[in-house]
């Protein structure tokens, strides 16, 4: 019995290993050919010397202003996402509808919204409103509708229905039940999810600049292409520290939302 189990385990391990070798086989490793430790070390060394002077110059194009812009894109995008997610949640929560078709349609729409990466939304919205931060806001907003709508719906379906029953039992109407039983229960959870997605949004907003949708991303890419490593370094440092601080801040608020 133990012997067969051991053989089975060995077989699985060998199978996985074979699969990995097959995966590694025809991947083009040639980019390593031009790799030299000398230039790598040089890059790393200059990355360790961030160009502090670029952080704040007083212009609207310095790293500080761009980071604030990135946060603003994230905040506005998450606001749009949160507000628009609520009607979708009401549409797609199974426990709010007697008819099973409506929630299925709602969930399908949310799935479709989520299927497109933010980058694709950004490219589409740049066509609509022109390059700039607003395109990033819309891209993040629409993507977040899909994400938050799904999470909100799950929470709505998972919620404790006993308080809902209590409201119905005293003759409350649907809207009153919503405001007295559902919202007080769900509000802290929804706020917590929205805050968490604000942090995620800031992270995506810092990449959307790559396609011209505003924020700090474009500057970073230009700096990388020009191999201006001290500048790359200060930008990355700013993004990391900002997201880290936001993580701490939203985590602190979320803990108090219990």
């Amino acid at each position: 019995m133990r012997a067969t189990a051991r053989i089975k385990r060995l077989g699985i391990a060998l199978g996985v290993l074979a699969l990995l070798v097959w995966c590694a086989w025809d991947i083009d490793w040639s980019s390593f050919r031009y790799f030299s430790w000398g230039s790598f070390r040089g890059t790393v060394m200059s990355l360790l010397r961030p160009d502090w002077s670029a952080f704040y110059t007083g212009s609207t194009e310095d790293i500080f202003s761009l980071m604030v812009m990135t946060i603003a894109i994230g905040f506005f995008g998450t606001s749009i996402g949160t507000i628009l997610a609520i009607p979708f949640t009401i549409l797609s929560a199974r426990n709010l509808w007697k008819n099973p078709v409506v929630p299925r349609i709602g969930k399908f729409v949310l799935d479709v919204l989520r299927a497109f990466p933010e980058l694709v939304y950004a490219i589409i919205f740049i066509k609509v409103v022109g390059p700039g931060p607003f395109a990033g806001v819309l891209a993040i907003g629409i993507h977040q509708v899909g994400m938050l709508g799904k999470l909100f719906t799950e929470e709505m379906e998972r919620m404790d229905e006993t308080a809902v029953e209590a409201c119905q039992a005293v003759g409350a109407n649907g809207v009153q039940t919503m405001f007295f039983a559902r919202i007080p229960q769900l509000m802290p959870i929804y706020a917590s999810l929205a805050l968490n997605h604000f942090e995620i949004a800031v992270r995506s907003a810092s990449t959307l600049g790559l396609v011209g949708a505003g924020g700090i991303g474009a500057t970073l890419i230009f700096a990388i292409q020009a191999a201006r490593w001290p500048r790359v370094s200060i930008i990355l440092l700013t993004v990391i520290v900002t997201v880290f601080l936001l993580d701490l801040l939203t985590g602190w608020i979320r803990k108090r939302l219990r």
């Binding site: 006993t162 308080a163 029953e165 039992a169 005293v170 007295f180 229960q185 802290p188």
Partner: peptide, 11 residues
């Protein structure tokens, strides 16, 4: 109506 799970909004 009073029930086993109290049916209160805990928050």
């Amino acid at each position: 109506l009073i029930s086993q799970q109290f049916n209160l909004v805990k928050r």
